[in-house]
Design a protein around this nucleic acid. Structure first.
Lengths: 213, 213
DNA sequence: GCATTGATCGATACAGTGTATTGGACAATA
DNA sequence: TATTGTCCAATACACTGTATCGATCAATGC
């Protein structure tokens, strides 16, 4: 008999399974089997699968370490550490924003960020942090979704256009989306990093305008 | 025998079920039953449940009508019409951003937006639209998640603090999250509309700075 | 020391899921 | 008329989350 069962071991196992084979590989039976116990044993430690998913998310928050001096650096770091966590745990993109994050590690991240937001007035803190979080969640979801789509349509990840070229080419050939076609065909394409950072800078610039008002 | 079966009728039925009882009420069996056919019939029109979900999302895009003169109004309108769709179809919040949106109605929304973005240089269009979309998706997800949590913890939706007060009160009483506690306790609280619009304005302000450069 | 109670935990069971497969009815062809 | 091919419904499979029940075993009362 290995270490005794507890919430943390259950959550760690679930995270491992999700890292390896995606969120749909996380079933209570599989988690239980990986731990060498019967499925019903888990219900001594968690109330439902939903709670397990919440605990997994909070486990991911435990890896996030926002740092930096000054509000801009801190918010940027919050964004990047969240994005990094989603890269390490792609299933996080499916769960982020899906329900309020009130676990201890999520609150700890929030505490660290808020505590370092010098120069931001009390009433501005919530809207500012909420906006950055919203942007990051949306951006990370799209990024992971694109990554999966690329992976699904052959292992080519060189360029969007090459991957789903046939479909888009055909669609644009109908002439129904001329403006869109021009952008996709002729505009410069940023890579994932630059896209993320560019959007983040838009937001931080806008926040700066408010802050220093 | 009613109208003949087709994709559109299947999707409309699935959307109705999701509107009424949430996304987890959408099973192929239930959709089929509502249409008076056997479950397997649906596979003549859709390849999998995932495809049905994609079609539902594209169906929601069909209701979005971004309008306005000038890039700022258009982007604001895009944000608001997306948010409105998620209010009309809460399940949309669960699906938005989860996979690339390439259906005809989603592309049509993109076309409308891009076509109206006068004054934005070609290379800026994609990052700008992507940023607004990312923000909206994240913001809407959080908003819907909060709404559900409020609904779950009793029908009170007056104030966050009142709804999950006990848990937060207890947590803050530990003194581990002093900065967070101060913000939650003492800062002004915006309602959902203002929170959404404030964050959106941050982003649009930041975009404006770039555009007019 | 023995009987009884109470908690603990595994196995079983249930209702539901997405979807593969199979078999039969019917239309079109030879 | 015989045969082939197409369509569609029913059955079946493997799996899900979780309620329930029965047995095991420790602690308690006499």
């Amino acid at each position: 008999m290995p270490a005794p069962l507890n919430r943390e071991r259950i959550v760690r196992t679930a995270i491992r399974l999700a890292d390896e084979d995606g969120l749909e590989a996380v079933s209570l039976r599989k988690v239980a089997t990986a731990l060498g116990v019967g499925p019903m044993r888990l219900y001594s430690y968690i109330a439902s699968k939903e709670e397990l998913l919440d605990l997994m998310v909070d486990g991911a928050y435990a890896e996030m370490r926002p740092v930096g001096d000054g509000w801009r650096e801190v918010l940027r770091s919050l964004a990047e550490t969240t994005r990094q966590a989603a890269h390490d745990h792609e299933w996080l993109a499916d769960l982020l924003g899906g329900r309020p994050q009130l676990g201890p590690h999520a609150l700890a991240v929030g505490e660290t960020v808020v505590a370092r937001l010098e120069g931001v007035s009390l009433d501005d803190i919530m809207p500012v942090v909420a906006a950055v979080n919203a942007y990051v969640i949306g951006a990370v979801r799209r990024e992971i979704a694109e990554r999966r789509a690329e992976r699904a349509t052959g292992m080519d990840e060189r360029r969007w256009q090459a991957a789903l070229g046939p479909y888009l080419e055909r669609t644009f050939a109908t002439g129904r989306f001329p403006a869109l076609a021009t952008v996709v065909r002729d505009a410069a394409h940023l890579d994932a990093d630059d896209t993320f950072l560019t959007g983040l800078d838009f937001l931080l610039d806008g926040i700066e305008a408010r802050i220093s008002r």
